[in-house]
């Protein structure tokens, strides 16, 4: 029954690697980009907040599937080419969407640190930047861990949507195998187990990290 995994191991291994690679890059880009946007929106004043809020709200309201297909077909025009590698399109689409959500988590995290903590830092003769990096950001970061963990988990699951633009990630490779082997049940069931394990590892790791530092985020 599990012969199918041996027979098609080349496809599965490629899919596995692409899924891991895709998610690793998207996590790095979306957390970095989300942090930048979130910080800018929290500290940047009204104009920055409103202007940067537009793409964030747009990305949060468009289905990821649409974003992916749109990026795949529209970005070649933006870059002046006729084709963009599906992997690159998936990185862009997933990072944009994930980054939009994470920027809101970052903004909320920063806002959750009460303003009197900023006053306390300023009263100690710190500059505004020092207050942010030494007082506000560390506390905000701790509080952001659980929601960022959830968002990363959602991102891993959503990365399967990259199959619609033919990114050879695990779900697409599995679809190909199903088409060739006619064995949807065993393949899809194993796929479920795989995503369950992957997401649980990520979620548990972040939970462990959080429980170690949670006491430092209380105020």
């Amino acid at each position: 029954m599990f012969d199918v995994f041996f027979d098609y191991r080349g496809l599965f291994i490629e899919g596995l690697l692409v899924t891991l690679q895709l998610n690793a890059i998207v996590v790095v880009l979306s957390v970095a980009g989300g942090a930048l946007i979130g910080v800018a929106r929290h500290y940047g004043g009204k104009i920055v907040r409103v202007v940067l809020g537009i793409p964030v709200d747009i990305l949060r309201s468009i289905p990821l599937l649409v974003v992916l297909i749109w990026v795949f077909f529209a970005s070649p025009m933006v870059f002046g080419t006729r084709y963009i590698d599906p992997f690159v399109a998936a990185v862009i689409g997933l990072s944009l969407t994930q980054g939009a959500y994470i920027s809101e988590i970052v903004r909320g995290g920063l806002a959750s640190v009460r303003s009197t903590q900023t006053r306390a830092g300023l009263a100690l003769g710190m500059t505004r930047t020092q207050v942010v990096t030494r007082v506000v950001a560390p506390q905000a970061l701790i509080r952001m861990l659980p929601p960022i963990g959830s968002q990363v988990a959602i991102g891993i699951k959503d990365s399967t949507l990259a199959s619609v633009i033919a990114v050879p990630e695990l779900f697409r490779q599995s679809q190909i195998v199903i088409g060739d082997s006619m064995q949807p049940f065993v393949v899809l069931t194993t796929l479920m187990v795989f995503y369950f394990v992957l997401v649980m590892i990520v979620v548990r790791l972040i939970d462990m990290l959080y429980t170690r530092v949670a006491a430092r985020g209380a105020s």
């Binding site: 297909i69 795949f72 070649p76 006729r82 084709y83 599906p86 619609v164 033919a166």
Partner: peptide, 17 residues
């Protein structure tokens, strides 16, 4: 060039393949 059911026709139109 890998294509999917959603991209196999549009990519021909667009010149991606």
């Amino acid at each position: 060039v890998p294509v999917s059911n959603d991209t196999k026709v549009p990519l021909v139109q667009q010149g991606g393949v």
